[in-house]
Design a protein around this nucleic acid. Structure first.
Lengths: 204, 204
DNA sequence: TGTTAGACTGACATGTCAGTCTAATTATCT
DNA sequence: AGATAATTAGACTGACATGTCAGTCTAACA
């Protein structure tokens, strides 16, 4: 087996084990058993257990980063709403294509140590600020009404995380991605209030 | 020191250590050092490390459970929107009163093992279904318009989680609780769309 | 002064697991 | 074929955390 193939196969074995059992409950023995290699072989390719975890995790963060585009209004761009829908589509699709990595991100990476936590925090902050930027842009274009965009972008980020978490579980009972995106955009734009009633005073 | 005091002091030491370093990176030695007791004393009060963690965690889940009321329209009840605001107020306040427990819930409990994960999942499912129930009620009352309530309730649950996570961090830069609740309710009801423009076709 | 209850102590036995080491095996080249 | 290099197997080591237990200490009471 070529070195490159071997490395990938070890990474893959580790990914599967980490996704199921997490970092601490996955031993080197578990990984090499699944990869069907000897102990020493593992250490030819990775310095230690932490290095292989970081390799997997960083790879995921980078993929998500690459799939998120800032929303702009350049002349060669699609409408902002389409750009948003495409962003959502890309990250949902990415997560569903590699549910094990998603499991690691959502279940097993948080709280691992302060370095990993910082990576995660910086990452979500980036997403939230991207959303915030889109809202600010929308306001400037008179599409979006005023509000605490910082707060709302955090709320939206949390909502999107939760949806991603759900659609990447083994027992995924969620609707199709496009259906989800349509529903989310509608909800975020129009809210829940029925147009026909004055909500706040309905109880009088 | 009375046994009851001692037990509380150990629980408190453990809570602080777990909140900072998580379950795996907190050793019994760390806990007893902070509680200023000998090793054996710890085992007089708790069977093992896991038992003290579960004690803390279950206590938090129960507190949150108790603070969440189902939204109804009994004659002696306040309007639904007020009930929702009060629910939000109670859980936000609860979390801020004990930020260490919140840290454990958000950072360190997920992914610990399948039993803890199931507790967490069941717990969030309960919240989501509570939200879903409120939406369904709203629809029946003609306050809320039709939609995929299951999906939306998951999204909202994620958003609320994210806000709770943020306001319970040591470096909390979020607005006041009442301000947050007002903003969230407005956003969820009315959405982002400015009333003055037709959003979807703005880019033509 | 002696006795008892029971909270508390801390040295130690036990187990686990990441990472190392060496010998054996396989592949590559001359 | 023989030499050399690359790769592999898996036994082994050492560090560290958990949980135990025989014994101490204190305060109250007889």
């Amino acid at each position: 087996m070529l070195p490159e193939e071997r490395k990938l196969s070890i990474l893959n074995a580790a990914k599967e084990m980490f996704a199921i059992n997490g970092y601490h409950d996955t031993s080197i023995s578990d990984i090499i058993k699944r990869a069907d290699i000897a102990r020493g072989t593992f250490y030819l390719y990775f310095k230690d257990k932490r290095e292989i975890f970081d390799a997997l995790f960083d790879q995921l963060l980078q993929k998500i980063n690459e799939s998120l585009m800032r929303v702009t209004i350049a002349p060669d761009q699609k409408p902002p709403l389409d750009q948003i829908a495409e962003n959502l589509h890309r990250i949902f699709q990415l997560a569903m294509n590699d549910p094990e990595l998603a499991r690691i991100l959502f279940r097993h990476a948080p709280g691992l140590d302060s370095i990993t936590d910082q990576k995660i925090e910086g990452f979500y902050n980036k997403i939230a600020s991207l959303v915030e930027g889109a809202l600010a842009l929308g306001e400037k274009m008179n599409i979006v009404k005023k509000g605490d965009f910082k707060l709302i972008s955090i709320f939206i980020t949390g909502g999107v995380k939760e949806i991603m978490d759900r659609i990447t579980r083994p027992e995924n009972h969620m609707p199709q991605i496009d259906k989800i995106i349509k529903e989310l955009i509608d909800f975020n734009l129009q809210g829940l209030a029925s147009g026909t009633a004055d909500i706040v005073q309905t109880q009088e």
